[in-house]
Amino acid sequence: MNTAADNAIEVRGLTKRFGGRTVVRGISLNVRRGRIFGFLGPNGSGKTTTIRMLCGLLTPDEGEGTCLGFDIRTEADSIKRRVGYMTQRFSLYQDLSVRENLEFVARLYEMRDPVAAAREMIHRLGLDGREEQLAGELSGGWKQRLALGACTLPGPQLLLLDEPTAGVDPKARREFWNEIHALAAEGITALVSTHYMDEAERCHEIAYIAYGELLTRGTVEEVIDHAGLITYTVSGPHLNELQAELAKLPGVDMVAPFGASLHVSGRDERALEAAIAPYRSRTGLSWVRSEPSLEDVFIDLMSTARDNFQ
């Protein structure tokens, strides 16, 4: 039954259409057990739809695969018992207290002592003293923690976390990621979708999706290397005007602001060098050859993808 001992997720060619519009196009993913897998992409790119297909909440129109060794089409019940899914929108009961929500989950999963399990989780989440507060009255950060607690409570082997840190302050975000790493250390696999670039750095592996298409995947270094972008960082005065000028040049594929400077990138090294040559001697500007950021890579991938799919 378990054909993929090493992979928690193994899917090929997942496709989903809503009313004739293809929202997810032939996505294939392998996620090794015990890894934290970052699922990046802009809003509306199909992250939620893909995750829902992984846990049996949506039926793929095409494609197949397994989650924890169970077929995503025919063994959704077995998957549900072993997967913790944290929805993008808070989906616990707002009119139930923290404790009641956790006890409900514990009972649904037939845990032996739901009351004790809930109490332990409240402690682990640092929610002591708030257990009788209604979930709907918690702040955004606490809601996210509670939702994570609820989906880890039954001891799942795989976590599917859909934008768990959206709209949460930086401190809560850091704590959230620490918690995910702590869970991974216990052997849990986590697939985390996000649109924060900096969170990619906290993942063992990432995949980038845009317009329903998987554009790239690998470790952060692999993704950057693979993109084959040549990037210069330029700083100096009047960068706004400079950005507009540079963007029009042939050989320059992308110009993006980066802090107080600009990242100027191109795929063809010689064409890029030729394009920027007249500007390199301009007084006041300083040019440095540098590594493209993940963001540069994604923006570049997206603009290429848009040309292909739109």
């Binding site: 846990c55 049996g56 909440l57 019940d77 549900k80 808070f90 989906s91 616990l92 649904l108």
Partner: peptide, 13 residues
């Protein structure tokens, strides 16, 4: 409408 169905359906009930 409250969105709680998504959670409920992802659990073994």
């Amino acid at each position: 409408e409250r969105g709680t169905m998504e959670s409920l359906l992802s659990m073994p009930i």
